[in-house]
Design a protein around this nucleic acid. Structure first.
Lengths: 188, 188
DNA sequence: ATTATCTATAGATCTATAGATAATGC
DNA sequence: ATTATCTATAGATCTATAGATAATGC
């Protein structure tokens, strides 16, 4: 039953990976430790050898998901320096992202959950958000202050557009919301 | 123990009222039927005389909270027809709203929860969102299409700004986010 | 007689822990 | 000998229901 130190480290990584997906899909209270472990191919008793608590895992899962998002933002912005807002808006506000929360933006999937969580969780998210804002701001025109303000407003619009598009029942309205924010950011 | 038909109707209303507050504060899975009933001054066994299920109550709580928000939007927009975006932005994006989720926007507090809920819940939210968008759009300049697009983009920016401001750990960043979106909407 | 609410509980789940097991790493 | 994982379970919670109680509304 025991595995090598190396395999244990891989198991731990896989738990975080699975958790970052399932938390985003089902919410923090929507998935239990036993099912998270099952998703990683382990039994739930082993969980507490890897983490102190479920919320500890959430903090790590947030960190991992944010790191991945930051890398995505960086690569997109580097590939399209001529149109940062339009590029990010189209990548963020589309039906694929809307319909696959488990692979998408942690803030959009878990914002209210994180707001209710402890400091470690919020720290992980905050660090990622700051990086994203810095990446985007650096590509925008204007004074440093204007860059920062525009980056924040753009991120807010994308985030809110995605949250609304997911919460709403009417497929036409949902699509319209995505497109409206994209259009607004393309012409900004 | 039994109360009058009239009192029972008031009790039912109070359950919905309490639920709309506690769901927004703690999330759908963050508060149980027993504590909701205790919040309304009743025992939890009586719950199922009023509602078929907890999710049924969520749908009603969403409807009630959205109705209240719609009335607030309407009154604000009527009082300040000269600056709809700035007025709404300042009313929505401030520290009071950020720090009292239980009394605030249902979409910002429960967006992801609603996205995972059943059709009745989504219907209640969608109906409210449509009314809010119509109210705001009617006050904006441009063609009907432009009005609608601007209303959607503005609502998205407000919503996203609030969600981020709540999720983030750094008080300065949180305030900056609120102010950045307000500034953007004031000059739009 | 009807019914709104109560007490009590079924049955399922949840986080976390205790102790056994068996393979690794010294 | 150490330790990663397992089985089993404690103890708390959760939604929902059953049946008793007592006041309303006919």
């Amino acid at each position: 039953m025991r595995v090598s130190r190396e395999q244990a480290a891989l198991n731990r990584e896989r738990i975080v990976e699975v958790a970052s997906k399932l938390f985003r899909e089902k919410g923090y209270d929507g998935i239990g430790v036993a099912d998270l472990m099952k998703g990683a191919g382990l039994t739930h008793g082993g969980f507490y050898g890897h983490f102190d608590s479920k919320e500890d895992l959430l903090a790590e899962a947030c960190g991992k998901a944010m790191d991945y998002s930051v890398a995505q933002w960086r690569s997109r912005l580097e590939r399209h320096p001529e149109d940062p807002l339009g590029t990010m808006a189209r990548a963020y506000l589309n039906e694929t992202h809307r319909d696959s929360a488990g692979k998408g933006c942690m803030v959009a999937a878990m914002g209210p959950d994180v707001a209710r969580a402890g400091e470690a969780v919020k720290n992980a998210l905050t660090r990622g958000v700051k990086e994203q804002l810095a990446l985007l701001a650096a590509r925008l025109p204007g004074t440093p202050q204007a860059q920062r303000q525009r980056a924040m407003a753009a991120y807010a619009a994308m985030l809110g557009g995605l949250v609304m598009a997911r919460a709403v029942n009417d497929p036409e309205l949902s699509k319209e919301l995505l497109e409206a924010v994209v259009s607004q950011l393309e012409q900004a």
